[in-house]
Amino acid sequence: MEKSLIIRDLHVNVEDKEILKGLSLELEKGKVHAVMGPNGSGKSTLSYALAGHPNYEVTGGEVLFNGQDVLEMGADERAQLGIFLAFQYPMSIPGVSMANFLRTAVNSVRKARDEKPMRVPDFRKMLNEKMSVLKMDRSFAGRYLNEGFSGGEKKRAEILQMAMLEPKVAILDETDSGLDIDALRIVSEGVNALRNPDTSVLIITHYQRILNYVKPDYVHVLVDGRIVTSGGPELALELEEKGYDWVREQFAVPA
């Protein structure tokens, strides 16, 4: 099976403290991978490090995207390649409308691929289509980016951005947190609608709840900065039942 992203022995420090301690993971094209882990296991560090946040210092290992080393790239270059992070806590940008921002982002990505900027009517049409999939009111496009958005609106806005940017690797960082069941269903439907043979989805989550709606092909368990075990969807249910302590005991992690 073809791999889109290969992470080998990744070590990442945050403020001089090692959080990821040799994490390895391979994402397959067209598949949904779930990484589950308890608080403090390094879930957010993994997503930020993959997206290229400057405060997450990679001290060892490699990350290959279609064979290309991405660790030397800035966040913008990674996004242009097709790596997308749906943020757990999206930033608000006052004074910048959602539509204006999305058009700039879409065209930045297109420019990096030597494609022409999208024509405004085409962009409008695409935006309206994707917003209706996510059951978002059209007035959303005119609102300032994440400014005054509710928790659910922010998550939907993240999925909308993902839909517009059509990434090759989509990382969802605790997208389910803070969502009520209706919002979770809508967001999950949005993610499912984006599944395609070219895109790998990486769902990073504490709970298996979202996995009831977005069925993973693989489940990986992250404990203390390493993937300690991997399996099929049944692993998520087993975790839910037995808890993370069970994993710790099973896969005694050296301190």
Binding site: G74, A75, A79, F87, P90, I93, G95, S108, V109, Y144
Partner: peptide, 27 residues
Amino acid sequence: EQLFYLMARGLSRTEAERMIVDGFFEP
């Protein structure tokens, strides 16, 4: 963090700064 958020969507640093400045003056 705002800068990173915009860059994580493919905007270059310059584009991201410009967007934040435009937004700052917008009101």
